[in-house]
């Protein structure tokens, strides 16, 4: 009995020692920056100017200022719209639909469609932005095609900026959800489906009563991942609209960048990033909670 215990203790020590380098690395590169972010968000740190030479602790000043700033409210609202429309609804539903419709179809069909959808995902954000800028611009492909139908050109990025970036983000991200749902759908045991079919369930009932409940876990995981990815989208929006016109596409990451690197207010920008982090954590917790309760 005692021998077994000491062996166990030995094992723990060993495990700890072997894990130590990784723990140090995680502390240094993951936990460290988070703690620093937390600290800096309570300072008046600046990239240049007198505050850069003499950074001071300013308490909750940054947060007070943030909640008084109408631009902050606008960007929170934009972030929520962007998140719900492009990630929670857009990418999830498009991804699921593509995966569901492709299920049990002929292999060449799956392959071609899969590759087409994946193309949007493997393209780097900045390239996606350029491609879509060319597509949506005044003399862009879309307007030329509309011209053939006799429709006057529309300044998409100017008149429908938020809808445009939402659409582009769905195009870019849907493949990720598709892959997740494909894997989940493939895991559904054939027998269950067959049994329900024999019991006389129609396609709609099979989807609603069988398929969805089984893949619920994957759906929530996917929701968490897609939400976090979309919360951080910067390049796409910045390259397409720069957050404009006005503040129409200014989401929190763009607002944060503007404050930190255009207005040189690093402390303020850091405080905004902290809020972004909190939103991400809160949403993830809600999703996971939702998964656990049922």
């Amino acid at each position: 009995m005692s021998k077994k215990k000491s062996l166990n203790g030995n094992m723990y020590l060993k495990t700890f020692l072997f894990g130590l380098p990784s723990i140090i690395l995680i502390m240094l590169f993951v936990l460290g920056p988070i703690i620093m972010t937390f600290y800096y968000s309570f300072t008046n740190m600046a990239l240049t100017g007198a505050a850069a030479a003499d950074t001071q602790f300013v308490g909750f000043d940054n947060f007070v200022r943030m909640f008084q700033d109408p631009s902050f409210k606008t960007s929170v609202l934009n972030t929520i719209i962007f998140l719900i429309a492009s990630a929670v609804i857009g990418q999830q539903i498009v991804g699921f639909l593509v995966a569901y419709l492709m299920k049990q179809k002929a292999r060449p069909f799956r392959r071609v469609i899969g590759i087409l959808v994946l193309a949007g995902w493997i393209t780097p954000e900045i390239v996606v932005a350029f491609v879509w800028f060319a597509y949506l611009s005044d003399q862009g492909t879309l307007n030329i095609m509309l011209g053939f139908l006799g429709i006057k050109p529309v300044a998409w990025l100017l008149n429908f900026p938020l809808i445009s970036v939402i659409f582009v983000n769905i195009w870019h991200g849907a493949a990720f959800s598709m892959l997740m749902y494909q894997a989940a759908l493939d895991d559904i045991p054939q027998e269950v489906e067959e049994a329900s079919r024999i019991d006389g369930a129609n396609a709609w009932q099979r989807l609603w009563r069988i398929t969805l409940p089984i893949i619920k876990g994957s759906a929530v995981t996917n929701m968490v991942l897609v939400t976090l990815q979309t919360l951080g989208v910067f390049t796409l929006i910045y390259a397409l609209t720069g957050g404009g016109p006005g503040e129409k596409t200014t989401t929190l990451p763009i607002f944060m960048y503007d404050q930190a690197f255009v207005n040189y207010q690093l402390g303020y920008g850091t405080a905004i990033s902290l809020v972004l982090l909190l939103i991400g954590i809160t949403l993830s917790l809600i999703y996971i909670r939702f998964l656990k309760t049922e």
């Binding site: 240049t48 100017g49 850069a52």
Partner: peptide, 11 residues
């Protein structure tokens, strides 16, 4: 444009 601020920052 950035000279005054960079000077104040001690750069």
């Amino acid at each position: 444009e950035g000279l005054k601020a960079d000077a104040a920052a001690g750069y």
